[in-house]
Amino acid sequence: MKIILNIWRQKNPSSPGKLVRYVLPSVSEHMSFLEMLDVLNEDLMQKGDDPVTFEHDCREGICGSCGIMIDGVAHGPLPGTTVCQLHMRHFKDGDELVLEPWRAKAFPVLKDLMVDRSAFDRIIQAGGYISVNTGSAPDANAIPVPKPDAERAMDAAACIGCGACVAACPNASASLFTAAKVSHLGLLPQGQPERPQRVISMVNSMNAELFGSCTNIGECEAVCPKRIPIETIALMHRDYLKACWSFRPESTASQGAG
């Protein structure tokens, strides 16, 4: 099948980019989207041209590396799928597509279709962890977790940090990502001690990274390859408001013991 790609080419973060048109005359419908780009890049390299830079790693939909806008939709037209798991059989012969990188102030374009998502790492560093003493492994099921809570936590933990939520949001908001990371710990008993501080730190970090605000429109959940619902964002809002409301400054009174 014939596919025409208009790909965003940008040399480096500071130079302006533009769309360049490539015609691929014989694309197999069994190829994944990334395999099609591999073929294009082989071709470009043989001609001595600069191959198209795109991020990829596992190619089985679990690492979150690959992520591009395909015709204005993050990860392309197939819902609940990363680009690497999107196959060309979902397109028609002669389709002309626009490929662009994620666009957000917090995700600067490094080259072509690849952006720097370190802002997500800094949100995680702000609070996406629990503090436990290391040592021998605890007994399984020593801490009871209700099944619905375990399932909701697992659903939130499915987030692979690909950034599609930011890319699809008209406000470039990272609310769905941050909410998923806040919730997968906040829903479990192990996450309770740091729950209020976690949500405050992570939301503040999200704001400091200059992601936009959530306007509750739902574009993020529509493109999320792990189908994380915006109910998760509501849970983050609730936790945040509760944490701000119940915040106590540390007591400075001397305890007198000892």
Binding site: F211, I217, V223
Partner: peptide, 19 residues
Amino acid sequence: LNKQARPSHYEKLTAAGSS
């Protein structure tokens, strides 16, 4: 804030799930 968060615009953006 939201304008600042998306300084460069998409050449093509299609709504996937919002009203």
